[in-house]
Design a protein around this nucleic acid. Sequence first.
DNA 1: TGTATTTGACCGAA
DNA 2: TTCGGTCAAATACA
Length: 276
Amino acid sequence: MSIVLHESASSKMKEILIKELIQGEDGSLVAASCNDDVKSEDSSESKKRLLPTTKDRRGSYKRRKTDETRTIVSKTIGDNHSWRKYGQKEILNSQFPRSYFRCTRKHEQGCKATKQVQLIEENPEMYQITYIGYHTCKASLQTPQMVAFSAGTNWDSFTVNPHSKEVLVNYDQQVPPISSSERPIVKQEYLNNDDNTTPQRSDLTDNLLDEHNLWSDFKDLELPKPSTLSFNNVAPSDNNADNVYSCTESQNLEIDFGSFSDFSNDLVYFDESQLL
DNA sequence: TGTATTTGACCGAA
DNA sequence: TTCGGTCAAATACA
């Protein structure tokens, strides 16, 4: 189960989500530790060598400040794309290294999509995956930013870090899903795992959301007035995407789920960039 | 032999 | 000046 939030998401949307999730009545929602801005004095990691040659101009790059980025948390790092690892780095104050992947069709098709994968310190079973840019290659099966509600998992907690741009979702698959005709059926994601050789169905997916899932939590949200969230169907970023909904703000401070007449095969997509 | 991964080094944004 | 992101040679693997 993963939630995708645009990095460009408005602070309003984040505030709403964060506030409500953190203040969950059942106590299952916890705030993530804020480990940002903690700079280490230990700079011994920096190994610089000044041997520049005209031939060897490695590392020349532009930081993707303005690129679209989406951060998700998942138990697997696989998706429908083919990735090639091009680097790994130890990150300051992080227990686990960060791996860098680019689309394998970067050169042949100029696909600019990259992703960064890092184990979460608080939960080493989960990966924090940051997608940067969108796939422009024709082999794209499904844009990763579409991944949102994967049904069937049982959410036992959310972890919301207001200092980062992400919502972490922990779930417990042991609890059998509770069927309900009123609950949305969200899109199932089939993964061709990069790490695991055989294609497998994502363990992030299943059929239905249960009473403890995000949907239920959203339904129970009491959003600060006077703002409201509604979900609108938005055009997918590529032809392979299914229906995608963006979350937009309206006036009533209620999440307007009425627009979801049929959740089958649809994805809920938080495009916070549309919130002002 | 071709492709993928590892790893040290470099660059540049912050 | 630091450190994250990227490059590319070296290495591993099929």
